[in-house]
C-alpha cells in the first residue's frame, strides 16, 4: 500500500456526517438551558445570603451544565421517538451526526463534572440536589414515565422546576418556603405551557406514540386541564409576593400576569377543535407565547425587587 493510497482513504464513519462542536452543544438542549440558567440565577440572587459574584457565576454555569447533561441523556434514550417527530428528527442522534454512545458518554461525563464542581463551588447540598435533578429528568421522567403516562409533562415539569431551588440551596445551603414556592410556580406552569403547544402540534406526538394528554384523552380534556392548572398556578405565584423575596414590582406583575394567563386559558378551554382549526389555533398559539412571557416576567420582577431591596429602596418605602 502506498503512502498516497493510505492517506486518501477516508476514515470510516467520518465522511460528510462528521460531528462538529455545535452538534455536541445541541445535545445539551441550549434553549432549555436558557430557562435553567435564568431561573437558577433568580433563585440564587433572591436568596438572603450574599454570594461572591465569581462563585455565583460558576454555580450557575455548572447548574446549566448539569441541565445540559440531563438533556444529552434524554436525547440518547429518546433517539428512536425523536426520529419520528418532525420537531426533533434533526437532533444530533436521530440525524446520525452523533452516535448514541457519544451522547451517553457526554451526558454521563458532564453529569459527574457538574455535580462535583457545583459541590466544590457552593456546597455539598447543592451538588447532591443537582445530582437528584439530573437523575429525576434522565431516569424517572425520560426512561420511566414519559412513554407510560399521559401525566408525563406534569412529572417532567418537576425536573425543570428544580433549578431555582438548586440556585437557592447553592446560596444558602438549605431549603425554605421561598424556593418551594419558586419550584411550585415552574412546576405548575409547565403543563399548561406544553399542553398549549401540544394542541397545535399534536400529530407529532401521536406519530411517535408518546402518550401526550392530547393523544390519550383528546383536545377537549386537555383544554379543561389547561384552565385547571392555570387557576392552581396562581396560588403559589401570588403567595411569593407575601414572602421576604416578594416586593411591589413582583406583586403588580404577578397579579397582571396571572390574570392574563387565566383569561388566556379560559378562552382556550371554551373553544372546540373546530373553532381552533378555523383560526389556525390562534388562541392556543397566543397562550403558548403568553406562557413564555409569564415565566420570564415573573422571575424578572423578583430580580428587580431584589435589586431594589439591596439598593435600600424597598426598606425606605417601608417594604421589608
Amino acid at each position: 500500500m502506498s503512502d498516497a493510497s493510505l492517506h486518501s482513504t477516508p476514515i470510516s464513519g467520518a465522511a460528510a456526517g462528521e460531528p462538529e462542536l455545535r452538534d455536541y452543544f445541541a445535545l445539551l438542549k441550549p434553549r432549555v438551558m436558557t430557562l435553567v440558567v435564568f431561573t437558577a440565577l433568580v433563585g440564587l440572587v433572591v436568596a438572603p445570603v450574599p454570594v461572591h459574584p465569581f462563585v455565583a457565576a460558576v454555580s450557575i454555569l455548572f447548574i446549566a451544565v448539569g441541565g445540559g447533561a440531563a438533556g444529552a441523556l434524554n436525547m440518547w434514550w429518546d433517539a428512536d421517538i425523536d426520529a419520528k417527530m418532525r420537531r426533533t428528527a434533526r437532533r444530533p442522534v436521530p440525524s446520525g451526526r452523533v452516535s448514541p454512545g457519544e451522547a451517553l458518554g457526554l451526558g454521563l461525563a458532564l453529569s459527574g463534572i457538574s455535580v462535583v464542581m457545583l459541590g466544590l463551588a457552593s456546597n455539598i447540598a447543592a451538588g447532591l440536589f443537582l445530582a437528584f435533578t439530573i437523575f429525576f429528568y434522565a431516569v424517572i421522567y425520560t426512561m420511566w414515565l414519559k412513554r407510560w403516562t399521559p401525566q408525563n409533562i406534569v412529572i417532567g415539569g418537576a425536573a425543570g422546576a428544580f433549578p431555582p431551588a438548586v440556585g437557592w440551596v447553592a446560596a444558602t445551603g438549605g431549603l425554605s418556603l421561598e424556593p418551594i414556592l419558586l419550584f411550585l410556580t415552574v412546576f405548575l406552569w409547565t403543563p399548561p405551557h406544553f399542553w398549549a403547544l401540544a394542541l397545535f402540534v399534536k400529530s407529532d406526538y401521536a406519530d411517535a406514540g408518546v402518550p401526550m394528554l392530547t393523544v390519550t384523552h383528546g383536545p377537549d380534556s386537555t383544554r379543561r386541564h389547561i384552565i385547571a392548572y392555570a387557576l392552581i398556578l396562581a396560588v403559589p405565584a401570588l403567595a411569593i409576593a407575601a414572602t421576604p423575596i416578594g416586593g411591589p414590582v413582583y406583586l403588580v406583575s404577578s397579579l397582571a400576569l396571572n390574570a392574563a394567563f387565566i383569561r388566556g386559558a379560559w378562552i382556550v378551554s371554551r373553544r372546540s377543535t373546530a373553532d381552533a382549526e378555523a383560526d389556525h389555533f390562534a388562541a392556543e398559539k397566543g397562550l403558548f407565547k403568553l406562557s413564555l412571557y409569564y415565566l420570564f416576567l415573573q422571575f424578572g420582577a423578583l430580580l428587580i425587587d431584589a435589586s431594589l431591596r439591596s439598593a435600600g429602596v424597598l426598606p425606605a418605602w417601608g417594604w421589608l
Binding site: E18, L21, V58, M117, L120
Partner: peptide, 26 residues
C-alpha cells in the same frame, strides 16, 4: 477536518482550568 473541534475542546479545557484557578483564588 477536525481542526475546529480540536480547537473548541482546547478552549473548553483552558476555560475549565481558568474556572478552577479562579475558584481557588476566591
Amino acid at each position: 477536518r477536525r481542526r475546529g473541534r480540536n480547537f473548541g475542546v482546547g478552549a473548553l479545557l483552558l476555560g475549565f482550568a481558568a474556572i478552577v484557578f479562579g475558584l481557588s483564588v476566591v
